[in-house]
């Protein structure tokens, strides 16, 4: 059983937000109204946390941090869910089952990374978004919590395709939308249990760190520090 993980190289990341857009389209993440956004209810599974800007124009370099669900090995969200709507799969992906969720938002309160988002309302989406609707992902109703699932639908499709072709799932068959779209290959994705995979090699780099590692959540999304 693989253990999926992700490494984000902050040296390569230009904070172009392609991953943010791709994630939003891939997973039918709702575009909220202006009022809701101002109330801090904007919905992002992958979010670009802009920290500061370095240098003078035109040699400007934003210091940003793409942040999705950390897919912790010891997730704090599943410990507080009263209905087991969120749980850790054997392959390490922390899944969220929307029909099971009762919207108590305990998991949101307990997540140290604040990656979970709540559907406060169901807004009518812009007409232009109709063409981008992804039929592989359900549209979450009002009142449930959602979060990044490492594009679990892509894993499902890839494993089904591999089974039809009578072969095992190979590295590269399954990558989330943010990894696929990244123009500078800042995000590497793969099996952390495979010693030859790129993501394992990257995780052994001296620059590697995880967000809030001292909490003991053991995040499987880790970063490579930006070094000038």
């Amino acid at each position: 059983m693989p253990k999926y993980g992700m490494m984000i190289d902050l040296n390569k990341c230009t904070s172009c937000q392609a991953c943010v857009t791709a994630c939003k389209l891939e997973n039918n993440v709702q575009i909220v109204s202006e009022d809701d956004a101002q109330n801090g209810r904007a919905m992002f599974w992958m979010k670009m946390l802009t920290l500061e800007f370095d240098g003078d124009y035109p040699n400007i370099r934003p210091k940003a941090l793409p942040r999705n669900c950390m897919q912790c090995d010891e997730p704090s969200c599943i410990k507080v869910c009263p209905v087991r709507a969120t749980y850790k799969r054997p392959d390490g992906i922390v899944a969220q089952i929307y029909p099971q969720c009762i919207g108590c938002r305990y998991c949101m309160a307990n997540c140290p990374y604040t990656v979970k988002v709540f559907n406060w309302d169901r807004q009518a989406q812009p007409v232009q978004m109709e063409k981008t609707y992804d039929p592989d992902v359900s549209v979450r109703p009002k009142g449930v919590v959602e979060k990044c699932t490492f594009c679990i639908q892509r894993l499902q499709k890839a494993s089904e395709k591999a089974a039809v072709e009578h072969r095992k799932l190979e590295p590269g068959d399954y990558v989330p939308a943010c990894v696929e779209v990244c123009p500078v290959d800042a995000i590497t994705f793969g099996d952390l249990d495979d010693p030859k995979s790129e993501v394992t090699k990257a995780s052994r780099d001296y620059r590697a760190f995880g967000l809030l590692e001292e909490l003991g959540t053991v995040p499987k999304v880790r970063y490579l520090n930006a070094i000038e």
Binding site: R89, P90, I97, Y98, Q100, D136, V137, I152, Q153
Partner: peptide
Amino acid sequence: TDCSHCHR
């Protein structure tokens, strides 16, 4: 019977 294999 893993939930996420059928529920999405």
